[in-house]
C-alpha cells in the first residue's frame, strides 16, 4: 500500500554494497508502532476528505428540498444526476465532451509546441530577446479574454475557440520556459564552453536537460489555461461543447444541466492533471540500470 514512503530500502543500493552506508536495521517494536500510527493518520485524513464531500452533497440535497434556498438557483445533486443520465441517454453529452476535449488537447499542444519553439529562439538569440522583451511582457499582461470578439470576427466560431485557448496559454509558456532556460547553472554552461561547445550544443546538452522540471511545471499550468481558454471561447460562440452546454443551460434556466456540465469539467481537468502527473513520473523516474 504505502509504497511512497522513503523508508523502503532503495533497490539500487543492494546492487552495489559499497555504494551507500544506509544501515539495514531489523525493524524494532517502536518502528512497527510508528508505521501503524502513520497508516492510521493517513486513513483518518482520507476519511475526513470523504466525509467532507458527503456532507457537502447532503447539505446541497437537503437545503433546496426544505426550501431553505431556492432550488431554481442551486439545483441539487439528485437532479443533476438525473440531468446527467438523461443527457447520456440522449447521446448528446458524449459529443459535448469530445468536442471540448479535442479543442483543449489541440490548443494545449499548439501552445506547448509554439511556446517551446519561441523560448528556444529567444535563448539562442539574446539580441532578439532584448528586442521582443517589452512586447512579450505587454502581451502576457493583456487579458486575452478581451480579444475574444476580435478572434470571432476574424476567425469565426470554431477558429476563435482555438485562438483564445492558444493565446491564453502561449505567453505564459514562453515566459516560464525562457525564465527557466535563463536560470540554468552558469557553472555547467562554463564547463561546456571550456570544451568548446557552441550555443546550440549548450542548449542541447545543458539548458534543455536541466529544465525538464520547468517543462513539466509549464505543462501543468498550460493544461489548466487551455481549458479556461476553450470554455471562454465556447461561451462566445459555439454549437457544441461543455461551455456551450453551460451557456445554453443557463439561458433556459436548467441549473441541473449547468451544474452537470461544471462537474464534468471538473472531472476533465482532474483527468488531465492525472495524465500529466503520470507523465512526470515516467520522465523523472530514475532510469532502470542495465545489467
Amino acid at each position: 500500500m504505502s509504497s511512497d514512503t522513503s523508508i523502503a530500502a532503495a533497490p539500487a543500493a543492494s546492487a552495489a554494497p559499497a555504494r551507500t552506508e544506509r544501515a539495514v536495521v531489523p525493524h524494532s517494536r517502536q518502528y512497527h508502532a510508528w508505521l501503524a500510527a502513520r497508516r492510521r493518520e493517513k486513513l483518518q485524513i482520507v476519511a475526513a476528505q470523504i466525509g467532507l464531500v458527503v456532507a457537502f452533497l447532503v447539505v446541497w440535497e437537503v437545503a433546496p428540498r426544505m426550501h431553505w434556498v431556492n432550488p431554481m438557483l442551486t439545483s441539487y445533486p439528485s437532479a443533476i444526476w438525473q440531468a446527467f443520465v438523461q443527457m447520456v441517454r440522449g447521446g448528446e453529452l458524449g459529443n459535448h465532451i469530445v468536442v471540448t476535449l479535442v479543442e483543449v488537447v489541440v490548443s494545449f499542444l499548439l501552445a506547448m509546441v509554439l511556446g517551446t519553439a519561441v523560448a528556444i529562439l529567444l535563448w539562442m538569440s539574446p539580441r532578439l530577446e532584448r528586442v521582443l522583451d517589452p512586447f512579450l511582457v505587454v502581451l502576457n499582461a493583456l487579458p486575452k479574454i478581451a480579444l475574444v470578439p476580435i478572434f470571432y470576427i476574424w476567425l469565426g466560431a470554431e477558429g476563435s475557440i482555438y485562438a483564445v485557448a492558444v493565446a491564453v496559454a502561449l505567453f505564459i509558456t514562453i515566459l516560464m520556459l525562457y525564465t527557466g532556460f535563463r536560470q540554468s547553472d552558469p557553472n555547467k554552461i562554463k564547463l561546456a564552453r571550456t570544451f568548446g561547445a557552441t550555443r546550440r550544443q549548450i542548449l542541447a546538452k545543458v539548458v534543455l536537460p536541466s529544465n525538464v522540471h520547468t517543462f513539466i511545471a509549464t505543462l501543468k499550468a498550460n493544461a489548466g489555461l487551455s481549458l479556461v481558454g476553450v470554455i471562454v471561447g465556447e461561451f462566445q460562440a459555439s454549437k457544441a461543447g461543455l461551455g456551450y452546454l453551460i451557456v445554453y443551460g443557463s439561458q433556459i434556466f436548467r441549473m441541473d444541466m449547468v451544474m452537470a456540465a461544471i462537474v464534468i469539467l471538473g472531472l476533465m481537468s482532474l483527468a488531465i492533471y492525472a495524465l500529466i502527473q503520470w507523465a512526470e513520473f515516467r520522465i523523472t523516474r530514475p532510469a532502470k540500470r542495465g545489467g
Binding site: 547553472d185 557553472n187 564547463l191 546538452k205 536537460p209
Partner: peptide
C-alpha cells in the same frame, strides 16, 4: 572548476 558541475541527469 571549483564546482564539479557533474550533470545530475
Amino acid at each position: 572548476l571549483q564546482q564539479d558541475s557533474l550533470f545530475e541527469w
